[in-house]
Nucleic acid binder design. Structure first.
Length: 215
DNA sequence: TCATTAAATTGTT
DNA sequence: AACAATTTAATGA
């Protein structure tokens, strides 16, 4: 899957490049909290970010993981609203920010950019529908398998390849299960030959089967 | 480069 | 949630 910026025309690409700045953050830092005014389109150049929120009772919930190559926050930028979710970094990361004027200019002028946005939004919609669906239908291993599969989604995170640096604890947080359950689930997925579990990393062997696990 | 130690991560109860 | 085992990273000779 081609990276979105590579599909832009020369002039559009230049404009995009000038409107993007990159900053480094360390593990555990928040990129933004609910209610912040961060009106920049946000991309993960390296590392992993997690979008989630904290309930009134203080319980943290992860909604979606954004690994290297993924972008988010377009809804906030388009609508000019405060952020509705927390974004926390799972590890040291480099984050790209595209300022709002640049984003809006591309939105108005670039066909390729819009195509990418639609594709991305469509994919994310599919993700949340799938999330609601398999939350009811699948056991912990199934949910974990599909969460991992979505992490490697070629549309949402085109840069990622088949290997990711992520601990079992982090996957557990993403999936919404305990670390113990995540550990067992990963072991059975590995036994079935769908992925390899390394120390602090995962290598996917069969993305197709992983994304259909439990059907 | 190797050995030692500390820290992080995993596997199990 | 706690513990032991394992792996990686850091340090210094």
């Amino acid at each position: 899957m081609a990276y979105w910026s590579s599909e832009l025309k020369e002039e559009e690409f230049e404009r995009a490049r000038r409107g993007i700045s990159i900053k480094s953050f360390s593990k555990g830092n928040y990129l933004c909290h609910v209610g912040d005014r961060l009106d920049q389109w946000t991309g993960v150049a390296s590392g992993i970010a997690v979008i989630g929120m904290v309930s009134a009772k203080g319980k943290a919930t992860s909604l979606i993981g954004v690994p290297q190559g993924g972008w988010f926050g377009e809804g906030t930028v388009l609508k000019g609203e405060p952020r509705r979710y927390d974004v926390i970094l799972l590890r040291d990361s480099e984050i790209a920010f595209m300022n709002r004027p640049t984003f809006l200019w591309l939105f108005e002028n670039s066909v390729a950019f819009n195509r990418h946005l639609v594709r991305m939004l469509n994919e994310r919609l599919a993700y949340f529908i799938a999330l609601a669906e398999y939350h009811r239908l699948l056991d912990a291993t199934g949910r974990l398998a599909r969460n991992i599969a979505w992490l490697f989604n070629p549309v949402l995170s085109p840069r990622i390849g088949l290997h990711i640096e992520i601990t079992q604890e982090e996957i557990a947080m993403l999936t919404g299960v305990s670390r113990q359950v995540a550990n067992k689930s990963l072991q059975s997925l590995e036994a079935e030959g769908l992925l390899n579990v390394g120390h602090g990393s995962i290598t996917v062997l069969d993305l197709q089967k992983l994304s259909r696990y439990g059907e």
